[in-house]
Every structure is written in structure tokens, then in C-alpha cells.
């Protein structure tokens, strides 16, 4: 009798265990399928959407009115009007494959400017490779170019990994 009672008690446990296993498998399947759906669907691009909302001013428009007339700017690839405190600077103007972006300027004056951001390289994502390099930027050599004050050089100091093997690079931007 005791054995039969034991087996009767064991039956609900078996049912609960089977239910738990089936539920776990079902949740796992749902999770996998949702993940698969997510992978096959268009995902949001929040940074691009933010950039869309805060449209960058055209060259010469940016902070031209707000900044003092003598504050030097950056002429993108030596062309156009100087932009004061630009958030983005193209480093390789031949193919525009390297761009300094997301620059936050800590100091910006006639004698020079310093800020931090990242250098982005367009050589491919591969899903895991590092192609974004944190760096410190320094603008120097302000002079009058075509009647407007503009910096003529940019120095890039990489904080960690470097895209070209050099921890410091200099670019002529005027």
C-alpha cells in the first residue's frame, strides 16, 4: 500500500516536471523565433535619427552668427566657409574614408582648440571588429584664409587602438 501511495504522489510531480520542460522548450522556441524575426526586420537607427533631427548647418552657417568674428573655424577639406566648433571633421578628403566625429570641444579659442571624440573608418564592420577609435583632437595654426579666420592643422592622439598604426596623426585642414 505504501508503494502504491508513493507512486500516486509521484504522478503529479512527473506531470509538473513534464509541464515545466514543455513550457521551457516553448519559451525557448518563442525566444528564438522572435530573435530570428528581429534579425530579419528593419531595426531603428537612433543615432542617424538624432542626426536627422538636429541637421548640421551648411558650411559657413554654423555658429557664424553666434561666434565672435575673430574665432577661427575649420574649413572642411580646405573648402567652403570655416565652421566654428564642428562636431565632425573629414580626415581623409580623398575618399572621405576616415572621419572624426562626435567631437566635444573642451577648449576652443584663437590660440587653439582641444576636444575628444572618435575616428570612424569605413573599412567594414564584420560585426565585431573595432573600427571606431576614441581620440583626442587638437586644432592649431589659426590664420586668416580668404578673409576668414581658420585653423590650418589638426592633431589626432588616439587613446587606445589606432586605425593606421600611429598613435598620433597630423592633418592639414586648410
Amino acid at each position: 500500500m505504501a508503494d502504491r501511495a508513493e507512486s500516486r504522489r509521484a504522478r503529479p510531480r512527473t506531470v509538473v516536471a513534464a509541464f515545466a520542460a514543455v513550457t521551457a522548450v516553448a519559451f525557448g522556441g518563442v525566444w528564438f523565433s522572435q530573435a530570428q524575426d528581429r534579425a530579419n526586420a528593419v531595426s531603428d537607427a537612433p543615432k542617424t535619427a538624432a542626426a536627422q533631427k538636429s541637421k548640421a548647418p551648411r558650411a559657413g552657417e554654423a555658429k557664424a552668427d553666434a561666434a565672435p568674428a575673430k574665432t577661427p573655424g575649420v574649413r572642411e577639406c580646405g573648402l567652403g566657409e570655416p565652421v566654428v566648433e564642428p562636431e565632425i571633421i573629414t580626415l581623409t578628403c580623398a575618399d572621405a574614408g576616415m572621419v572624426a566625429s562626435g567631437i566635444k570641444w573642451a577648449h576652443y579659442a584663437v590660440d587653439g582648440a582641444e576636444g575628444n571624440g572618435v575616428v570612424q573608418v569605413s573599412r567594414g564592420a564584420n560585426g565585431a571588429g573595432v573600427t571606431s577609435f576614441p581620440a583626442r583632437f587638437r586644432l592649431y595654426g589659426a590664420k586668416n584664409v580668404d578673409g576668414k579666420m581658420a585653423f590650418t592643422g589638426l592633431e589626432v592622439d588616439y587613446a587606445g587602438a589606432t586605425p593606421l598604426g600611429e598613435s598620433r596623426e597630423t592633418y592639414s585642414i586648410a
Binding site: 537607427a45 543615432k47 564592420a125
Partner: peptide
């Protein structure tokens, strides 16, 4: 996949800013 998409979003964001400012196709 998330990292790859996030990075492309970041690249596109920069490229968009360059394009809006200089009409230049960057990155």
C-alpha cells in the same frame, strides 16, 4: 548583429552630417 547594426548607424550618422554640411559622401 546588434553591434554591427549599431556601428553602421554610427557611420551613417557621421556620413549624414558630412553630407548635410558639405554634400560630400563620407565613410
Amino acid at each position: 548583429a546588434g553591434q554591427a547594426q549599431s556601428y553602421q548607424d554610427s557611420l551613417l550618422s557621421s556620413a549624414l552630417q558630412v553630407y548635410q554640411r558639405d554634400s560630400l559622401l563620407a565613410l
